[in-house]
Write a protein that binds this DNA or RNA. Structure first.
Length: 260
DNA sequence: CGGCCTGTTTCCAA
DNA sequence: CTTGGAAACAGGCC
């Protein structure tokens, strides 16, 4: 379930066992998820130990002793999963990292939208792929300037990964609900005050979701996302939530609270 | 069977 | 060249 908070939870999860033992071998079960040259990936990873991790938006980087990074991008349905040799391999495993200790790390990805690749430099990767800074790091003024420069629906602009990275479909909906902004308002038409409110709510939603390790059962009562996944009503006024499509994505809102 | 889904990339048109 | 919007990608679930 990978938006910024989910990927941060994955980062902490892999850190629980990632550094303990060197990689014995890597095994590719579905070529589709391997974005780098497989032979090169194998050569650069086998025998190496992981030494650190870094997350930017929805991208998880894991650094090796040789300073190269293994990048996991989870698409819509990906997740990392450790398992022991005697345990059954997780369903939809696409790539397995075998450690010398016998522990294995699976890149699980049901729909094959996720990708694994070898990255030489994160800065270079960000430049080449137009990946912005993490959404938790963006400043109020950069945030406002970017939204003001875009004519698309505000929800669509929040999903862009190139100015600030990590916002996905449910977070965009939740933030606009908290800010009482209709998702189809054009971003450049927002007032300074509205932009400030959206920024504050974005930071708040991200921080709470990270703190709860993206476990939405533990989200606060005033969050709309719980209702959204439970087919429910507005936590503020009780009105039934409405589903529309914005930028091709399912979008939930309360028409009372988010009139304009 | 049709519709839906937490994401990105690619293609096309303006 | 930039921007916005739609389609494509894949598999499982209801």
């Amino acid at each position: 379930m990978p938006e910024l908070p989910e990927v941060e939870a994955y980062r902490m999860y892999v850190e629980t066992a990632l550094f303990e033992s060197p990689i014995q071998k890597v095994e590719l079960l579905r070529e589709k998820v391997m974005k780098s040259d497989w032979k090169e990936f194998k050569k650069q990873t086998e025998g190496q130990r992981f030494i650190s991790t870094k997350r930017i938006g929805k991208y998880l980087f894991m650094q090796l002793e040789n300073k190269k990074w293994v990048l996991f991008h989870f698409g819509m349905t990906g997740k990392p999963e450790f398992y022991q040799s005697k345990e059954v391999q997780p369903k939809h495993s696409r790539l397995i990292i075998h450690f010398e200790s016998g522990l294995k790390l699976s890149f699980v990805c049901m729909r094959l939208f996720g990708r694994v690749e070898l990255v030489n430099s994160i800065e270079q990767y960000q430049k080449e792929h137009k990946l912005g800074i993490d959404a938790l790091e963006v400043s109020q003024s950069d945030f406002s300037d970017y939204l003001s420069s875009r004519k698309a629906a505000v929800k669509t602009v929040l999903l862009h990964q190139n100015a600030f990275a990590g916002v996905g479909n449910w977070i965009a909906d939740e933030v606009l609900f908290q800010s009482e902004i209709h998702p189809e308002i054009r971003a450049h038409k927002l007032t300074k005050k509205q932009l400030e409110r959206i920024y504050d709510d974005l930071q708040e939603v991200l921080k709470i979701a990270v703190q709860k390790q993206a476990n939405y059962h533990e989200f606060p009562e005033h969050f709309m996302v719980k209702e959204r996944w439970g087919d429910g009503n507005c936590p503020k006024c009780g009105e039934e939530l409405k589903r529309i499509v914005v930028g091709g994505r399912g979008t939930y809102l309360c028409e009372n609270e988010q009139a304009g």
